[in-house]
Amino acid sequence: MPLALFAEQVLNGLQFGVMLFLMSAGLTLVFGVMGLINLAHGSLYMIGGFICAAVAAFTGSFLLGLGAALAGAAAAGVLVETLVIRRLYARDHLDQVLATFALILIFSEGTRWVFGSFPLFLDVPDLLSGPVSLPLGIQYPAYRLMIIVVGLLVALGLYLLITRTRLGIRIRAGESDREMIAALGVDIAWLYTIVFALGAALAGLAGALVGAIQSVQIGMGEPVLILAFVVIVIGGIGSVKGALIGAILVGMTDTLGRFLLPQFFATFMENTSATTIGSSLASMLIYILMAGVLIFKPQGLFGGAS
């Protein structure tokens, strides 16, 4: 197999992983600080994609669309948090799952009601369309490189936010002892709203970025949501570092599995059934990975005892 092809697939795996990180970072933060399982996180991703597409179509600027997606998803996050989510913190996981499942129904059909049943158009900005040349003779889409860079910058930003700022201290305090920081006079309701909005904004950003190379349509958030769950379970729920490593692990496993497994089966069986079997197995690979991690580390790679 040519080295350039393999290197390109590794880049693809990295890019997929970084995209998953943007989704899982918010999910894992919200869980770590508020102890909330949010199934509607995928809806915020979808909202990001739709707002970006609508604003980009109206203004002609992808960058404005991206900004609007961030702001819009954050605003949706604040709205949902103050109206619904904050009533769920004291509830058990069961109520959280059901309420956020209900939110998915409302968001999906609401979006369809506003934007119609057909997918929206959203394309990468002209500046980043087309490929760039990398070493080894690899031609790689500029936009995908940009996603990798943005994702890594967000990871760095989150790291600095959590370790270096006052908000970060409160977030960490909130993770370790919720009652105590309220007793210390921190406005806990406000902190929760900010964290939820931050997670929503990251999901919206991911939706907008990915919408430009995939498709902006109803239900686009659900497959990603489930992958994000796998990521944070592997990484350890509540750990942003775990989310980053888990995301890249899942991205790599999925991309390389899809690429290598059919070829592996083709070495000893007939071509068509090798492709079918290889693809079937590849689609289950990340779940097998997750089961494997949990057998040895039931709290995920970086999860504390909860």
Binding site: I37, H93, I237, M290, A291, G300
Partner: peptide, 8 residues
């Protein structure tokens, strides 16, 4: 973890 692993 249990919710998500059963989902997966």
């Amino acid at each position: 973890y249990f919710i998500m692993i059963t989902l997966a």
